[in-house]
Simulated scan of single mutants.
Amino acid sequence: MARRADAAGGTPATVALTAAGIAFTAHPYRHDPAAASFGLEAAEALGVEPERVFKTLLADTDAGLVVGIVPVAGRLDLKALATAVGAKRAVMADPAVAERRTGYVVGGISPIGQRTTLPTVLDETAELFDTVFVSGGRRGLDLELAPADLLRITGGRVAAIARD
């Protein structure tokens, strides 16, 4: 894969990947503001199976804010996420807090290049694919990269945190 920050509009995510020397491919698409699910919209627009497209969600735990990355067709298992980071409980973070802490808008939150480095957990199903898609830091932009590179750039770990 080529590094194409120019095609991505130079978001913090593409800048971070380029600076780290991590190969990625930017996949811009026309975003429909009326879309019910940003992630499923991306999968359909890009012609990629939803299991390979991942959404970035923030949860508030008794250990602080945590990033969970799960397939767009699934849901985040908050109890499993809490367990993965050694917390006792987790609830979805307030969207305004998520935007403020990451520097991204809801629907375009990338796990890469966030304003504040947060503990990150990637669902284990990502390892089934050579590459996965995550938000590139704005609505209408996904980045394709290897799961191992996603873990490296985020300092993340893998756990079973998704459910159907």
Rank of each mutant, 00 (worst) to 15 (best):
residue 159 A to W: 15
residue 44 E to Y: 14
residue 40 L to E: 15
residue 160 A to F: 07
residue 162 A to R: 06
residue 118 L to H: 13
residue 94 D to Q: 03
residue 22 I to H: 11
residue 79 K to P: 11
residue 135 S to R: 04
residue 158 V to H: 05
residue 16 A to E: 12
residue 5 A to M: 09
residue 143 L to Q: 06
residue 145 L to G: 00
residue 75 R to P: 14
residue 93 A to S: 10
residue 92 M to V: 07
residue 88 K to S: 09
residue 116 T to L: 15
residue 71 P to L: 01
residue 148 A to F: 10
residue 153 I to T: 04
residue 72 V to N: 01
residue 58 L to Q: 02
residue 6 D to W: 11
residue 148 A to T: 12
residue 39 G to F: 01
residue 100 R to W: 13
residue 33 P to Y: 08
residue 161 I to K: 05
residue 52 R to H: 05
residue 150 L to Q: 04
residue 2 A to S: 14
residue 16 A to G: 06
residue 105 V to Q: 12
residue 29 Y to W: 09
residue 104 Y to K: 11
residue 90 A to W: 09
residue 85 V to F: 02
residue 60 D to M: 13
residue 12 P to Q: 02
residue 128 L to N: 12
residue 144 E to Q: 10
residue 74 G to R: 13
residue 11 T to G: 02
residue 65 L to W: 05
residue 84 A to R: 09
residue 13 A to N: 12
residue 109 I to W: 13
residue 109 I to C: 03
residue 82 A to N: 02
residue 106 V to W: 11
residue 85 V to K: 01
residue 133 F to S: 05
residue 113 G to K: 15
residue 43 A to E: 08
residue 29 Y to R: 07
residue 2 A to C: 11
residue 21 G to Q: 10
residue 145 L to Q: 06
residue 161 I to V: 08
residue 159 A to R: 11
residue 120 T to R: 07
residue 46 L to A: 00
residue 52 R to S: 04
residue 43 A to P: 06
residue 144 E to I: 02
residue 157 R to Q: 14
residue 42 A to Y: 10
residue 101 R to I: 10
residue 60 D to R: 14
residue 135 S to C: 03
residue 138 R to M: 03
residue 142 D to G: 05
residue 37 S to R: 13
residue 60 D to S: 10
residue 16 A to N: 05
residue 88 K to Q: 13
residue 163 R to Q: 15
residue 43 A to L: 03
residue 149 D to E: 06
residue 25 T to D: 15
residue 151 L to Y: 03
residue 136 G to M: 05
residue 28 P to H: 09
residue 60 D to N: 10
residue 27 H to Q: 10
residue 19 A to R: 14
residue 98 A to F: 15
residue 68 G to Y: 02
residue 33 P to M: 09
residue 16 A to Y: 14
residue 128 L to P: 12
residue 164 D to E: 12
residue 84 A to E: 10
residue 3 R to N: 11
residue 121 V to P: 09
residue 156 G to S: 00
residue 8 A to E: 15
residue 110 S to R: 08
residue 71 P to F: 02
residue 38 F to Q: 12
residue 126 A to C: 06
residue 65 L to F: 03
residue 98 A to L: 04
residue 121 V to T: 07
residue 66 V to T: 00
residue 37 S to F: 14
residue 77 D to P: 06
residue 105 V to E: 09
residue 127 E to L: 06
residue 89 R to H: 12
residue 67 V to G: 00
residue 24 F to Y: 13
residue 58 L to V: 01
residue 21 G to S: 09
residue 62 D to L: 00
residue 61 T to F: 00
residue 113 G to W: 11
residue 121 V to N: 06
residue 151 L to F: 01
residue 147 P to Y: 02
residue 23 A to E: 13
residue 2 A to I: 12
residue 26 A to F: 08
residue 97 V to T: 15
residue 23 A to R: 15
residue 154 T to H: 01
residue 136 G to C: 03
residue 31 H to L: 12
residue 159 A to L: 02
residue 7 A to V: 15
residue 36 A to T: 07
residue 62 D to R: 01
residue 38 F to K: 06
residue 75 R to S: 11
residue 7 A to C: 08
residue 72 V to E: 02
residue 58 L to D: 04
residue 119 P to I: 05
residue 118 L to W: 10
residue 151 L to V: 04
residue 93 A to P: 07
residue 77 D to Y: 04
residue 49 E to L: 05
residue 91 V to T: 09
residue 49 E to N: 15
residue 11 T to W: 07
